[in-house]
């Protein structure tokens, strides 16, 4: 994938993440301030297509956005270059995707 394509992907995922992160943070504040228990939270998320969709989208955007940025930082701050760095970035993408989707499944799928 070309550097231009990676840049485009990172920019687009950033645009997507901006509103998602805001909703996510507001949601955390709301849940904490409202004093919701874990059970009450699960009650609202389990089986919810909206929250499931929201967080699947969130996880995909993170899995695209973060590895590209980490790759850039590695190339700026270290001597790491080339295929091994690309492979590591791709691996990071899959790790984030797997961990994230697992977390989404845990709160959305009926227990």
């Amino acid at each position: 994938m070309s550097e231009a394509a990676l840049f485009a992907l990172q920019r687009l995922s950033a645009k997507l993440l901006a509103p998602l992160v805001i909703v996510h943070l507001v949601l955390i504040l709301y849940a904490v301030h409202g004093g919701l228990s874990a059970a009450e939270i699960l009650e609202r998320t389990r089986g919810s297509v909206v929250w499931g969709g929201f967080y699947v989208l969130f996880v995909i955007a993170v899995a695209v956005h973060a590895p590209i940025g980490v790759r850039n930082v590695a190339r700026e701050w270290t001597r790491w270059r080339g295929r091994s760095l690309d492979a590591a970035s791709l691996a990071l993408a899959f790790i984030l995707l797997a961990l994230g989707l697992r977390a989404v499944a845990a709160v959305v799928l009926p227990g």
Partner: peptide
Amino acid sequence: VTAGGGCAL
């Protein structure tokens, strides 16, 4: 400027 080493950095 879009290629590697360009404005994206």
